[in-house]
Design a protein around this nucleic acid. Structure first.
Lengths: 152, 152
DNA sequence: GAAGTTGGTTGACATCGTCAACCTTTTGAA
DNA sequence: TTCAAAAGGTTGACGATGTCAACCAACTTC
């Protein structure tokens, strides 16, 4: 236990790096999004991401991607449609499903979010070389493979 | 936007690596803790960590470390004291504060958690060299410094 | 010494998450 | 081909979690 006692800089555990990095990232993006007064919360942002990046996106795609309960996603999607950010169209593949896409205003939102994220990414990358970034991605990718049981 | 379209392996964005890694970590540790039937939720685990690693730990230390509301922490601490995991003693520095520490059963819990975390860490590290790990820590540390405004 | 700030407690309520029930559609086994 | 099981999505109900406010005692600052 005493080896974890000193919580400063280079004696942080791997766990702490992983969790701190994401926490700080989230704190920064939340502050940026709130400061932009876009009226978005974290779930909105994540959902916009999934839909923007998933061809023929259904509610079930979002459920799987975000690892969330289908009830929650149904409500989220319903809210975002009501706000005019999303549109839905019948799926030709499956009558139970609707294909979700970003509306024009949803796309504008997504672009604003991307700019904010790019700003934070630039902050994160300050002082790091391209090799550092490539190494980080390679190592983090391996870690992810390991954590997801190499099924990724 | 289309450069973020392909979400497979080496074309993931930095954001995605950071958030995915922590999400998978959390999914894994939650499953392990639940499987161990310790009766702990995520906040319990985090609180045990903070107290185990903070000399003369007060509620306020936990608030600052976890970035949470003092009302929430007060309730959490009260609950954990009621469960017998924590003990409190008057602070000699400040009569408003109590010094929190792990009880014997709290320490047992913390040790069980550490074992689970070590198991997951070993999973994460499979196939990575010591140099990889050192690089990851160096790079992640730099990223954290960048994100926390170099005040860390 | 007085005013302002801080540590902690509790009330009240908002927000978020989960489970269940349900209906329609699809899938796959017999 | 038929039908039971599974799946996609919706909504009800309620539990879990988080936030803001009010308050009091203790501490700090001027």
């Amino acid at each position: 236990m005493s080896t974890n006692f000193i919580n400063k800089g280079s004696n942080m555990t791997l766990r702490e790096y992983i969790l701190s990095l994401s926490q700080f990232y989230r704190v920064n993006i939340r502050a940026a999004v709130n400061a932009s007064e876009l009226g978005l919360n974290g779930m909105h942002v994540r959902c916009l991401h999934v839909i923007a990046n998933t061809p023929d996106c259904t509610a079930n795609c979002i459920v799987k991607n975000m690892g969330r309960d289908k009830a929650q996603i149904a409500r989220l999607v319903k809210e975002m449609i009501a706000k005019g950010w999303l549109e839905k169209h019948p799926s030709s593949e499956d009558k139970r499903s609707q294909i979700l896409s970003l509306s024009a205003s949803g796309r504008q939102l997504q672009q604003k979010i991307s700019l904010l994220e790019k700003t934070i990414e630039n902050t994160i990358l300050t002082g790091l070389s391209e090799q550092d970034v490539a190494d980080f991605q390679r190592i983090a990718g391996k870690m992810l493979d390991n954590l997801s049981g190499s099924v990724s």
